[in-house]
C-alpha cells in the first residue's frame, strides 16, 4: 500500500473520530451542516477538476470520478459540521472572524504539504491562497444557509405534527 492510500485511510478515520465528538443535542445542526456543505462541495469539486485547476492522482472511484471523493463527500462536510456545532455566535466579530480563519487555515496548511510531497492532490492552475479563500467563502455560505434554515424550522415542524 502506498503512502497516499495510507494518508486517505488515516484522514477518514481521523474525521470519523472527530465527528463522534459532536454533542448529542447538536446532531441535527451537524446533520444539516454536513448535507448543505456536501451539496456545495460536490458541485465545486467537479467544477475545479472540469476546468483543470486541480487534479487528484490518487483517489477513490478513480475510473469515473476525477475529483476527490474523500474530501468533497466526507472530510470537508464533516469539518463544516464541527465548525457549525462549536460556532462561537456569542463572541465578538473579531473572534468570529478568527474562528473562520482558523478553520480555513487548518485545512489549507495540510493541503499545502500534501500538494508538495504526495500525490493525493496536485495544483495545476491553483495556489494555496485560493484554497484558503474558497474555504473561507464556502464556510460563510453554509453558515448563512444554516442560520436561515433553523430560523423558523421549529414552527414548521410543530405545525406539521398538529396537522
Amino acid at each position: 500500500m502506498s503512502l497516499e492510500w495510507g494518508i486517505l485511510i488515516f484522514v477518514w478515520s481521523l474525521t470519523f473520530s472527530l465527528i463522534s465528538l459532536i454533542p448529542k443535542n447538536k446532531r441535527r445542526i451537524a446533520f444539516v451542516a454536513f448535507l448543505s456543505m456536501q451539496v456545495i462541495t460536490n458541485l465545486f469539486g467537479v467544477l475545479v477538476v472540469e476546468f483543470n485547476l486541480i487534479s487528484y492522482p490518487v483517489r477513490f472511484f478513480s475510473e469515473v470520478y476525477r475529483a476527490s471523493f474523500t474530501f468533497e463527500y466526507f472530510i470537508y462536510p464533516s469539518v463544516c459540521s464541527i465548525f457549525t456545532v462549536f460556532y462561537p455566535y456569542y463572541r465578538s466579530y473579531l473572534y468570529r472572524f478568527g474562528y473562520y480563519a482558523a478553520f480555513s487555515t487548518a485545512i489549507t496548511v495540510p493541503e499545502f504539504f500534501l500538494e508538495q510531497y504526495t500525490d493525493v492532490i496536485n495544483y495545476i492552475q491553483w495556489e494555496w491562497y485560493w484554497t484558503w479563500f474558497t474555504l473561507f467563502l464556502t464556510l460563510l455560505l453554509s453558515r448563512r444557509l444554516i442560520v436561515w434554515f433553523f430560523k423558523d424550522l421549529s414552527n414548521e415542524v410543530s405545525s406539521n405534527n398538529k396537522r
Partner: peptide
Amino acid sequence: FMKEEVAFENEKRVS
C-alpha cells in the same frame, strides 16, 4: 430529523 420536537427545540438556538 423531523421527530422529537422537544429535542429539536433545544437545538434550534443557532444565533
